[in-house]
């Protein structure tokens, strides 16, 4: 087990030594600041209407948590997906293209183990990136609104609207960001799977982004209402149920079981593709 962690450390070292890894962090901070400035200038708009329309005090619920949640809602899906696919699409294809894979596999390490290390690395990156998004959004919310107040949680994808006081709200926000991190591993799994083919890293990234976007559009188009269970983004949205006043744990576990199955399937298929490849320039 120690050896496995040493090897994983090597993968993480490679990932976090690259400037490209940090583009996602930088871009997200820039977007967070932009959204924050827009909120400051134009107010919360529809959020304000929803709070007031529910008979609640906007001043109380216009808090750091609500601001953070709004920023997250705007940015996480598209921007997060972009940077996750960028990293996961690179992780095998780029090393194959550059010849690093031949350097690594001249060692007595199996292809399965090597891929597992890489898969865990991009999954950890997905999780960590979401946590970074969540807590930097919260930090910016604190700068704007300070500590305290309520938390107005709204996730239209799963029809959740809830009001919390600061303490319970903070707990829910923290818990939902953890589950959102798990959901986003499905995005990196798709890119990772494509990355296992003998293709350009950019092709893996574009392929994964396209899949996610098509899936998302299909889910919202109305044509797939009877087939929602086939869409990955439908299951990914299950994190939002953490914010419901009464958490439906069986439904949440079912959603994560599907995401887990999708991840395992994509990893297995990616491994099968990679295992069958001859690694030679």
């Amino acid at each position: 087990m120690t050896l496995f962690f040493q090897q994983w450390y090597g993968e993480l070292l490679k990932l976090f030594a690259r400037r490209r890894t940090y583009i996602g962090f930088g871009a997200f901070i820039a977007l967070e600041i932009l959204i924050l400035l827009l909120i400051k200038k134009f107010g919360m708009g529809p959020i304000q209407k929803a709070i007031v329309g529910s008979g609640q005090s906007f001043e109380y619920y216009f808090s750091a948590l609500t601001v953070a949640s709004t920023i997250m809602g705007f940015a996480i899906f598209l921007l997060g997906a972009l940077f996750l696919t960028l990293v996961a699409g690179d992780i095998v294809a780029k090393e194959g293209e550059d010849g690093h894979m031949r350097l690594l596999l001249a060692r007595p390490v199996s292809r399965f183990r090597l891929l597992l290390l890489k898969y865990l690395t991009c999954s950890a990156y997905a999780f960590f990136l979401v946590q970074f998004f969540a807590w930097t959004s919260f930090l910016l919310g604190l700068i704007l609104r300070g500590w305290g107040g309520g938390y107005f949680a709204i996730v239209p994808e799963v029809s959740v609207v809830a009001f919390y006081d600061w303490g319970p709200g903070l707990q829910r926000y923290a818990l939902s960001s953890l589950y959102l991190g798990l959901s986003m591993t499905a995005v990196s799994s798709i890119a990772f799977f494509l990355s296992c083919f003998r293709i350009k890293p950019a092709a893996a990234t574009i392929g994964a982004l396209t899949y996610i976007l098509v899936d998302f559009i299909m889910r919202n188009s109305g044509f797939m209402d009877n087939y929602q269970h086939l869409l990955v983004t439908k299951h990914m949205a299950v994190w939002g149920r953490i914010l419901a006043e009464n958490i439906d744990w069986p439904l949440i576990w079912r959603g994560y079981a599907v995401i887990f199955a999708v991840n395992v399937t994509l990893f297995t298929l990616g491994y099968a593709v990679f295992e069958s490849r001859d690694l030679k320039s």
Partner: peptide
């Protein structure tokens, strides 16, 4: 076995020492 297989490509964003560390961990 120890091998130099095809071109000697390393992780340019790591030091020589870090490259050796990553590779040795796989052994």
């Amino acid at each position: 076995i120890g091998a130099i297989y095809e071109a000697a490509v390393f992780y340019d964003y790591l030091s020589g020492w870090q490259n050796l560390r990553v590779l040795c961990s796989l052994s």
